[in-house]
Design a protein around this nucleic acid. Structure first.
Length: 105
DNA sequence: CATATGACACTAT
DNA sequence: AATAGTGCCATAT
């Protein structure tokens, strides 16, 4: 088994997301070779013991919606805007801001 | 080991 | 397009 817990891998991947970009739970799950673990990814970020070190606010749903956040999605939107990400109708243009972690390992 | 929970995703209606 | 139902995986109890 992995030396790190699934959650640990999620944090490590989330930290790699550059400022001004976002990623999705599904994309992260794929990066971890578990394309069906989107839910588990969300669980890991929910615990997020590394916050705010881990930019969990840069992780959104695969359909471009913000999803849920501990302090409420409203706070998250404000942060993303400050990062340079444009939020439209509480949604993000994945075509423009989705960060693809191709450079995995 | 079984059940319940959760920051999701997909398909059907 | 919007809503509901189902599937999926990792943790907690």
């Amino acid at each position: 088994m992995n030396l790190k817990s699934f959650a640990q891998l999620v944090y490590d991947q989330t930290i790699l997301i550059p400022r001004g970009k976002v990623s999705t739970y599904l994309e992260i799950a794929k990066a971890l070779d578990s394309p069906h673990s989107a839910r588990a990814v969300g669980n890991a970020l929910n615990k997020n013991p590394y916050a705010p070190q881990v930019p969990c606010h840069r992780v959104i749903k695969s359909n471009g919606e913000i999803g849920g956040f501990a302090n409420g999605p409203k706070n998250k939107i404000a942060i993303l805007k400050r990062e340079g990400v444009e939020i439209i109708n509480n949604k993000i243009d994945l075509k423009k801001y989705l960060y693809e972690c191709k450079a995995k390992r």
